[in-house]
């Protein structure tokens, strides 16, 4: 199963660079045909595969600081692909791909039991409470590579898997078996004006993500970079999204045992 040439696609998000502009969210919505409603103010009912959180250090002026944290699916590997959400799905509608490290979601297979939502501590998995309704004419601008989803099922970030397939198709057509780093990039990565998001193969030492994340594979991918942290690392979710921050309070915010002042 776990072949040595397996890829582990992942991300490094530099929070020092993120301005919280939300371009990644918009790009993701457009790329993945994410449905929205006329009034989408209730964020617990709306869907966003990428969501930008606003973190505060809880101090008052002049020590007050804040930080924006974009949160795509963390593509948890858990122990040997035992991600929190994958193992629980009764209908095998979600899967951990050992070859890419991507946690997939099969919308046509999901029957909406929502067990995976209860399992994911990041609130990444979101439910289609309504059928999608596109504003007049918008159907024509939907991405043909991504199937639209119906009401009653769960969806989430796929690391723009269709882009991976498209890139592979192109490479195969050109007689290549491997992709260059720039050939497979997610929509959010490309949309970020601040260049805060880096995407690539964490297993490939030549890739920028590997250099930034410096994953220690002997310790479930823990980063050797002192500026890096992963969300809820101590739960053993073994995520593939690494965050960078020069601020200690931000790095601590990723842990459950945060200083509760």
């Amino acid at each position: 199963m776990d072949q040595p040439n397996n890829k582990r696609f992942g991300m490094v998000i530099d929070l020092d660079k993120c301005t919280g502009c939300g371009a990644c969210m918009v790009a993701c919505m457009a790329e993945n045909n994410v449905p929205f409603r006329e009034d989408d103010t209730d964020k617990l009912l709306s869907i966003a595969w990428m969501r930008v959180y606003r973190l505060k250090n809880g101090k008052s002026f002049p020590q007050a600081e804040e930080c924006f944290l974009p949160r795509p699916c963390q593509h948890c590997e858990g122990h040997h692909g035992h991600s929190p959400c994958v193992s629980v799905c009764p209908a095998t509608a979600t899967d951990y791909d050992m070859q890419t490290g991507i946690v997939s979601q099969v919308p046509t297979r999901c029957f909406g039991c929502r067990y995976c939502m209860a399992a994911c501590p990041y609130h990444v998995r979101q439910f289609n409470w309504w059928d999608p309704v596109w504003p007049d004419g918008m159907e024509r601008s939907l991405n043909p590579d991504v199937s639209v989803r119906m009401r009653g099922i769960v969806e989430k970030c796929s690391f723009c898997y269709h882009r991976y397939q498209r890139a592979l198709d192109k490479a195969y057509a050109e007689g290549r078996r491997d992709l260059k780093e720039h050939e497979y990039q997610t929509a959010c990565t490309q949309a970020c004006p601040a260049g805060a998001i880096t995407f690539g193969d964490l297993n490939n030492p030549a890739h920028a993500v590997h250099k930034l994340a410096q994953p220690d594979m002997a310790h479930e991918g823990q980063s050797r970079n002192p500026k890096a942290f992963r969300l809820l690392e101590r739960l053993g979710t073994n995520t593939k999204i690494y965050y960078l921050s020069s601020k200690e309070w931000v790095r601590k915010a990723g842990d459950t045992a945060v200083q509760k002042a």
């Binding site: 193992s87 799905c89 009764p90 209908a91 095998t92 509608a93 297979r109 999901c110 029957f111 909406g112 039991c113 929502r114 439910f127 289609n128 119906m150 009401r151 009653g152 099922i153 769960v154």
Partner: peptide, 16 residues
């Protein structure tokens, strides 16, 4: 409770 009751049989057919 399930979002797509018509697919409820997937739990048996595609059992994990």
């Amino acid at each position: 409770d399930v979002g797509q009751p018509l697919r409820a049989w997937f739990i048996f057919w595609h059992a994990n």
